[in-house]
C-alpha cells in the first residue's frame, strides 16, 4: 500500500466530531438527524457492519423545545423490577431532574434495538449548556446545521433597531396600553 493510499484509507475511516446546538430544537426531529451522524449513514461507505459512525457533541440541551403541550403530556415510564416499582415521570419533571435525558432517550429510541446501539450511544455527548470540556471541543471539526432557524428575540435587538423598525400606526396619546 502506497503512502497516499494509506493516508486516504486513514482519512476515510477516521471518526469526525460534530457539534450540534439544541437550542429551541425539537429533540425528536433532532434525534433522526443525529442518528445519521452517529451511525455513519451520512457517508457513502456506510454498511451495517462497518463501524464508521462519528462523534456528536450536543450543547444547550437545557433549551430544547417540545412541540405542542408535550411537556405536560409526554410520560416516561420506568420500572425497577420489583412489585410496585413502576413510575411514570412527566417530560417537564424529567427535564428538571436531568436536562440531557429527553434528548438522550429520543436518540436511543430512534435507533433500532440491536447489539450496536449501546456502543453507538457512547459516541453521543450531551451537555446541558455550552460548557464542554476543552479536550472534547478540540476534536470538533464540523457543525451540524440546526433543523429550525433560531429567531432573534425582541430583547436581543438594540434600542435603535427597534425604534427604526417601520411602524403601521402611532398609538394615540390617550390610548392605554395594557
Amino acid at each position: 500500500m502506497s503512502v497516499l493510499k494509506r493516508v486516504q484509507q486513514w482519512a476515510t475511516f477516521a471518526r469526525i466530531w460534530h457539534v450540534y446546538d439544541a437550542t429551541w430544537q425539537n429533540p425528536f426531529q433532532s434525534a433522526e438527524l443525529l442518528k445519521k451522524y452517529l451511525m455513519g449513514i451520512h457517508k457513502p461507505i456506510y454498511h451495517p457492519m462497518n463501524d464508521c459512525g462519528d462523534h456528536v457533541i450536543v450543547i444547550n440541551s437545557l433549551d430544547i423545545a417540545l412541540p405542542g403541550n408535550e411537556w405536560a403530556k409526554r410520560v416516561y415510564f420506568h420500572h425497577t423490577g420489583y412489585p410496585g416499582g413502576a413510575t411514570w415521570t412527566l417530560a417537564w419533571e424529567l427535564h428538571r431532574k436531568d436536562p440531557t435525558m429527553i434528548l438522550k432517550k429520543a436518540v436511543y429510541n430512534s435507533m433500532d434495538g440491536n447489539l450496536q446501539r449501546r456502543y453507538t450511544m457512547e459516541r453521543l455527548h450531551i451537555f446541558p449548556d455550552g460548557n464542554v470540556p476543552p479536550e472534547l471541543m478540540g476534536n470538533v471539526s464540523n457543525q451540524i446545521r440546526q433543523i429550525r432557524p433560531m429567531p432573534k428575540r425582541l430583547d436581543h435587538y438594540t434600542k435603535e433597531e427597534v425604534e427604526k423598525f417601520p411602524k403601521i400606526i402611532d398609538y394615540p396619546k390617550d390610548y392605554i396600553l395594557r
Binding site: I41, H42, Y46
Partner: peptide
C-alpha cells in the same frame, strides 16, 4: 436498502 442509503449519503 443499503444501496439507497449509500446513494442518498453521496
Amino acid at each position: 436498502e443499503l444501496r439507497n442509503a449509500r446513494i442518498i449519503a453521496g
